[in-house]
Amino acid sequence: MGHSKVRKISNRPVALHARIQHDVESRIVSGQWPPGTRIPFEHELTTEYQCSRMTVNKALSELVKKGLIERRRKSGSYVRQPEVLSAVLDIHQLEREVRALGLDYSFRLLRRTERQATDEDRQRLVIDQHASVLHLESLHIAGQRPFCLEDRLINLDEVPHAAQADFSAIAPGSWLLEQVPWSAAEHRINAVAADRHAADILDLKEIAPCLVIARRTWNATGSVTQVRLTYPGDMHTLVAQFAPAGRGA
C-alpha cells in the first residue's frame, strides 16, 4: 500500500519527514528495535514511504540529534546504545556497566605480553627499573558494539600469580578486584581524539572524540596496576557525587 505525504494527527497536518521520524522513534522507544539494531537503509525507507531520499535523510538527521540513532561509516544507521554513567571515584567492573544498560556483555583479549618494565611502563606504574610487568590489551563489547578498549599493566613484582591467570576467560579488571587487595587509587580523565589503532578497534573514525580514564591502584607495598580505558565519546558520562567540606556554601 502506498503512503500519502501528509497525514492528520489531532487535526494538524504532519510532513512526511516528521511521520518517518515518529514511526522510527516509536519502534525504538517501544523496544521493537533495541539498541544495536540496524534500521532500514535510506533507499529502503524511500521505497516504503514513496518519498525522496532527502526527506528520509531529514528524518534520520533529527533522530541523530535526539540521540536515538547513530550513523556508522559504511554500514548504515543503528539504534544508539544509552550512555553509561560512571562515578568518578569508584572502580567499576565493565561487565556491570554494560549489563546495567540491559545489553549482553562480552570481551576479547587482544594482546598479552610479559616483559621487563620499559621506561614507559615505569612511568605509568611508578615502579623501579628492575620490575617485571604483564601488558594486556582487551576489548569490551556491549551488545554488538565495541564499548571500551582496555590497555593494562600489572606489576608482577606485586602480583606474581597474574602471570598464570587465564585472561582469555576472565577480564583482567574483574580478576584483580577479586584476587588482589588495594588501598588507594588515582584517576586521570582526558578527552582525546582516537588514533588509528583505537579507531580501528572501536569502529570509529580516526580523530573521533574519546574519553580516556587512566587509573592507577596500589597497596601498602607498591603499585599494583595501571589501566587506560578508552570509551567512544558519545557513550560515556562521568558522574561525581560529593558533600561540602564545611558549613559554607
Rank of each mutant, 00 (worst) to 15 (best):
I154G: 04
A220K: 15
L149K: 04
A191E: 14
N155F: 07
A208H: 11
T230Y: 04
V180P: 02
E150M: 11
M235C: 10
N155P: 11
E150Q: 12
A194Y: 05
L229V: 01
H197Y: 15
A198E: 14
L202K: 07
A185E: 10
V192F: 06
L176K: 04
P181F: 03
H161L: 02
H161N: 09
D234F: 06
R196E: 15
E178R: 15
R152C: 09
V227W: 00
A199G: 06
N219K: 01
K205I: 03
P160D: 10
L176W: 03
A185V: 03
R196P: 08
A208K: 15
K205M: 12
A163E: 12
G173V: 02
E206G: 08
F167A: 03
A162R: 11
L177R: 06
C210H: 05
A165M: 11
E186K: 13
A194T: 11
T225D: 14
A163F: 09
A194K: 14
N219Q: 05
R216A: 04
I189Q: 05
A194R: 12
Q226D: 07
V227G: 10
D200L: 04
P232Y: 02
S174I: 00
V180D: 08
H197L: 05
R152A: 11
L177T: 00
W218E: 08
E206K: 11
S183V: 03
G173Q: 04
D151W: 01
A198S: 15
A169F: 06
D234H: 12
F167H: 06
T230V: 13
W175I: 00
G222I: 01
A163L: 09
A185W: 02
R196M: 07
L149A: 01
A191Q: 14
N155V: 03
R196W: 04
V180H: 09
A191G: 00
V227C: 12
L202S: 06
A163K: 15
I213L: 09
V180I: 12
A208C: 06
A214V: 03
L153R: 06
R215A: 05
C148V: 09
Y231D: 07
R152K: 09
A171G: 07
A208T: 04
E158M: 14
S168L: 02
W175P: 00
I154L: 14
F167K: 08
R215G: 02
H161E: 15
P232M: 00
T221E: 13
R188M: 10
P160L: 04
A163I: 01
F167Q: 01
D203K: 14
L149G: 01
E178L: 13
L211S: 06
A199F: 10
A199E: 13
A163P: 01
P160T: 00
R228V: 08
P181G: 02
A214Y: 10
N155M: 09
G233Y: 04
A191C: 07
N190Q: 15
A199L: 05
T221Y: 03
